[in-house]
Every structure is written in structure tokens, then in C-alpha cells.
Amino acid sequence: KDKIELYKCFKQLNLDATLHLIQDEKDIDGKMIKSLEHGMRMTDKALFRKELPLMLEKLKDRKSPMRENSISYPCKNRVFKFKDQGDKFKLEIV
């Protein structure tokens, strides 16, 4: 319920948002989504493998000044750092 409300707020703010609702056993694929428990027993690696290419595609033509050639996302006890290196992106997990 809370995630649906948050998604509605994003849409009202005209943010580019997508909501993937996982509601019952039929949504469990055994590869990415392994259970209906919190976190769905989904690995960070599987999530990034699926969603990162879509995010990068949306951002590829975006013109914005960057002071650094990287962006970091803290998640629990790790930091995911994406670095722009030539024509590739490198992921460092610290």
C-alpha cells in the first residue's frame, strides 16, 4: 500500500517512475524473485542486472553537468559506485 502511494506521488511530480507489483505466488519466478518475504530473497546483483541497463538507456542523452565521473548509492552496509570510464560504466561495490 505504501509503495503504491509513493509511486503516485512520483507520478504527480512528473518523475519517471515504474512500479513492479509482486502480489502473489504466481509472480515468483525462482530466478530473480524467490519469495514473497521482505526483499523477496532477490540479490542486488540480479536487481542491477535487470534495472541498470534501463536506467542507463534513459540517461544516455541527458545533458547535465557532472563534477565527478561517478555516482554512489549506499545500500545497507555497502556502497554501489558507478564510474564513467571511457565508453563503459564500471561498478565498484565497497
Rank of each mutant, 00 (worst) to 15 (best):
K34C: 03
L21E: 06
L56W: 03
I33M: 00
N69P: 12
K58I: 05
G30K: 00
V79P: 02
V79T: 13
R62N: 05
E51I: 14
E51L: 15
H38Y: 03
M32G: 02
M66W: 07
C9I: 15
F82H: 01
Y7D: 12
S64N: 11
M55T: 05
K3T: 10
K76V: 08
K1W: 13
F48Q: 03
E5F: 14
L15C: 07
L59S: 12
N69L: 14
E51Y: 09
M32C: 07
L19Q: 02
K90S: 12
C75D: 10
L6E: 15
D61P: 00
D84I: 13
P65S: 09
E68Y: 11
L6H: 11
K1S: 10
K90I: 12
K11N: 03
A17F: 05
Y73P: 07
F89I: 14
K50H: 08
F89G: 02
A17V: 09
L91Q: 05
S70K: 14
Q23F: 07
L13F: 11
M55Y: 04
L13S: 08
K45G: 03
N14C: 04
P74F: 03
K81M: 09
D27E: 11
K26C: 04
I71P: 11
I22T: 01
K63R: 15
K3I: 12
V94S: 13
